[in-house]
Amino acid sequence: MAVIEVHGLRKRYGRHQAVDGIDLTVERGEVFGLLGPNGAGKSTTVEILEGYRPRDGGDVLVLGEDPGTAGRRWRARIGVVLQQANDSAGLTVREVVRHVAGFYPAPRDPDAVIELCGLSDKADAKLRTLSGGQRRRVDVALGIVGGPELLFLDEPTTGFDPQARRQFWSLIRSLAAEGTTIVLTSHYLDEVEALAGRLVVLAGGRIVASGTPQTIGGRTEESTVSWRDADGTHQVSVADPAVLLGELTGRDDPHLTDLRVQRRSLEDVYLDLIGESR
C-alpha cells in the first residue's frame, strides 16, 4: 500500500487558489521531492499532508488515514521537520531531544539520534548558541526521534553553507537507507536531484511535470552536441547524439576539439516548466 495517496487536492486562501487539483502517490521507502518556486503550493500541500491545515477538496490518505482527522497514534508514525523554528532556545540539545522522545510510544535512543545527526559535540550546548546548520540538524533530530515511518522535510537546507548542505544530504541518505519514507520540498534543484528518487514540479498550485530527476520534463529526449573545428564553434540539438558523434569522429579532422554531449540541465527543464505555467 502506498504511504501517501492524494487525489484532486484543493486549497484556497480567500481568492487565491493555492493548490488546484493535485494527484500524488508516494510509495514506502521512497525519497519523494516536491519542487517549485516560492508560492507554488508546496508548503500548503505538505502542511495538509502533515495534518496542520484543512483542505477544501480532494481525497488524502497518509499512512492509510485522513490527516485531517487522524489521531495521536497516527502522529506517532510521522515526523515533521519544520521550515523555521526557534523554540526551546534555553534548552540543551540533549534535553530537548530527550523531552520530545518522551512523547512517543517507541522512540529511538536520543543519544543515538544526536550522534546520527552529527550533534554529539554540541549535545550539552543550548540551542540558542548553535549555528543555523546545527539548529536545523536539531530539527531533524526532533523529527526522527519518534522513529517515524514517514518524514516530512520542508525546505530543509535554506540558508546552509555548501559544506553544511553536503553533510545534511548524507544524513538524509542514511535515513532513507534505513527505510524511512521521506517527502522533501525544496526550491533548490541540485538538492532534489541529489536526494529524490522521484519528484513532481509544482507551479501555480498544479503539478506541471513528474518523473525521476533523470527523466523529468523530457530531459532524455534531446541532447546538445557542441564542438570546435577549423570553421569555428558548432552546437546542435539532436534526439540521438550517437549518430552525430560517429559522423564527427569519423571525419578524422585534426582540428576537432572541445567535443561535448550534454543533456539539458535540470535547471533548464525546470525553468521551462515553471515558465510555461506563468
Binding site: 502533515e50 496542520y52 502522529r75 515533521v80 519544520l82 523555521q84 523554540d87 510510544p105
Partner: peptide, 17 residues
C-alpha cells in the same frame, strides 16, 4: 511566544496533546 517561535507547531505534529 510559543505560537511565534514554533513550540506549538512542533507539538502539534507529535502525539503530545
Amino acid at each position: 511566544g510559543d505560537r511565534d517561535d514554533g513550540t506549538l507547531k512542533r507539538l502539534r505534529a507529535t502525539p503530545a496533546t
